[in-house]
Computed example of a mutant assay.
Amino acid sequence: MQKVEGGTEDARGFAIAIVLSGIGAGGTERVVSMLANRLARNGWRVTIITPEATDAQSYYPLDSSVDIVRLGLPAARYGRFRGRWVAIRRILGLRRVFARLKPDVILSFLTRTNVQSLMAAVGMDVPVIVSERNNPAMQEVGPNWNRLRSLFYPRAHGLVVMTSGALSFFPESHRRRSWVIPNFATLPHGVVARRDGKVLTAVGRMVHQKGFDLLLQAFARIARRFPDWTLALWGEGPERETLERLVHGLGLEGRVHFPGLSQRPGGWIESADVFVLSSRYEGWGIVLLEAMAAGLPVVSFDCPWGPAEMVEHRQNGLLVPPEDVEELSRAMALLMNDPALRDRLAQAAKSDSRRFEPDRVLSQWEDVLLQAAVHRHSGSTQRRLAPAA
């Protein structure tokens, strides 16, 4: 990779437009908030653009110099024709904002938003970098969006993914320039893992991907052996009622709790003793990394992709075959039954998570964006590129 000599000083005066579907709670939103804050501190003019309602508030703190533009076209269940009309309005809205801001680089997150950003920027002399944050081989975006992605991704300046597995999904035409940048491990100030109880914890949006139904089945197999342990499922989503019915069907009343969203980012860590990732697939699995950074013992499905890049089996956590409920229950029982093993794995997890410190990861993002901005002006500037150290 190359970098611009002079470090962040060369970024001053550059403008970036960051486009994403929402500014609420979530892994992508966390990355965007921290990246936007870093860029703003380093002299970039930063604008976040979201289709959300005009009164939408950011779940994560943002620097006072970061502007937010809300298009007032939030996600909702639309019929086919209504949905297309809303998508067109979003594209037109993005194009108007791009024309007004005249950014040096556009950074877009998630497939549908990426396609809309690329369409909105057609004919504009501005590089667009798109980032996929999930597992593109497993995530269903629909045939129309797949076709549009195939048509417009070759127009992107470059593609950022979190794992080599995700990168291998895309043909060469979709990644003229490409970068694998992992997620980072970060804990909000004041959040500390206490690990003085007996609570299994899982965190995520309550959707099929997260596999909470598999986790409940695994817990049901061992619950009677560990009557003093409980399971907390943090998050909200369309499958919550289905999961609550499953709790009843498995006879787990009083043993499983649904606390909802934590009142502050990372607050769920403070009541967790063992963290479990039961996802069928992931783009990365940022909550797994957060648990490791907090010094929690972890057990995870070895799902595609992400967990195997963070967890080394029996060294800093436990990995079990994807969607194998029986093996998941055994791994959970192993940790629940062995405090010494929990302590050993927790200490190793906390140490190993330093590979993903925010400053290291965010500096990779800034290098990519700076290269793109300089590339746009390469015909009229004397900025000099030097090999990275």
Rank of each mutant, 00 (worst) to 15 (best):
Q2H: 15
G6S: 09
F14S: 11
I18P: 04
V19R: 02
V31D: 06
V31A: 11
S33W: 07
S33R: 07
M34L: 14
Y78N: 06
G79Y: 05
W85N: 11
R89M: 11
L94W: 11
R112H: 11
R112T: 07
M124D: 11
D125Y: 09
P136S: 11
N144W: 15
R149D: 01
S150C: 12
H157M: 08
V161N: 07
A166G: 09
P171A: 07
E172V: 08
W179A: 14
V191D: 09
V191M: 04
V192D: 06
K198F: 04
T201P: 00
A202C: 07
H208C: 03
F212A: 02
A218H: 00
L231N: 00
P238K: 10
P238Y: 07
E239M: 10
E241G: 02
V247N: 01
H248W: 09
L250M: 06
G254Y: 06
G254C: 02
W268G: 00
W284G: 04
L289M: 09
E290W: 07
A293W: 02
A294K: 05
C303W: 04
C303F: 03
V311L: 03
G317V: 01
V320A: 00
P321M: 01
D324R: 03
D324S: 08
V325E: 05
L328F: 01
A340N: 09
R344H: 10
K350E: 15
D352M: 12
R360S: 14
V361N: 04
W365T: 06
D367I: 15
L369D: 06
L369C: 02
V374Y: 00
S378Q: 14
A389E: 15
A389N: 15
